[in-house]
Amino acid sequence: MKNSRSYVILVVLIATAFGFSKYQDLQYPDYFPVPEYNFDNNRLSDEGIELGRNLFYDPILSRDNSVSCASCHSPYNAFAHTDHDLSHGIDDQIGTRNAPALFNLAWQKSFMWDGAINHLDMQALAPISHSGEMDESIQNVVLKLQQKERYLHLFKEAFGDTPISGAHVLKALSQFQLTLISANSKYDKVKHGSDLFNEQENKGYALFKANCNSCHTEPLFSNYSFANNGLIVDTTLNDFGKYAITKQSKDSLLFKVPSLRNLKFSSPYMHDGRFRRLNEVLNHYTSEIINTETLDPQFEQSIALSSNDKADLMAFLQTLNDTDFVFDPKHQFPLNKSKNPKE
């Protein structure tokens, strides 16, 4: 009797050990802040991340199986969409905003240029359901996935032997996207002490700290708040940003502050992709600010930068490009499909 009880305890201990070993923590540098994402409700596992990666690259999420997340969030563009000012959806429809780059999402408090989405888990519902993006429903996505042997297997691996649910689809997509961490740029190497800025980069860093850091706060290079940065309204879009969500006049023309990491890969810039080149962005801040009621107070006095200053600032911004992140095979199209030939 005593023996059998110790066996039970042993089995429980082994199971617990295996249970824990399945999960993993997000890896990020020690100078990053604490993530916003609450991992207690969605523990990362290799299987969950792999499932999420398969879903991210699979056009099954769209109505006619033509558009995947990666269609507008390509790994080679730091998960943005190069050369498209506005996002390009199902049936060649054109949206009203620029597809943002995706990285360091665990630190974002809200999603979309206007903050319409309050949690990473819920973000994918928007493009899946939007008639101009994927034009599908999460209900039908679940039905389609349930008919695929490969997905029945992947969901079982990730979440155990329960039927595929909408919650599991969204949790897996979150898991994969949470692993998209950009923290290996030259800036990061300098932070780690394994590289040094040259003279021009150092000057640019000083200019950055004086003029940009209050919103594009390092080390994430955004404080992920919302601001009116003085862009003139594009009258073909009449996009008033956060106002559309809150209907509060104080939020008119406020858009989310994007990160300045990986700018080399994620052109064009701004919520409507109006600037194709970084020097156009810098020129906006030095001489094209439009003063409206909600303009961020920091822009009431224009930023003065000489052409040398701009060149130095540009040199610093180049140090935020993270080639290792952009070309990381772990983030790319999953080539392991042949392992499970049964579709």
């Binding site: 319409a116 819920m122 649910s165 949790k171 979150s174």
Partner: peptide, 24 residues
Amino acid sequence: TNVSGVFGGDLDPTNGMYWTWQSG
């Protein structure tokens, strides 16, 4: 609950009781 991410069961988004274009 509205700001805590996705849940299954009665709260699963497939139940058609979650807005897609704006969280809630």
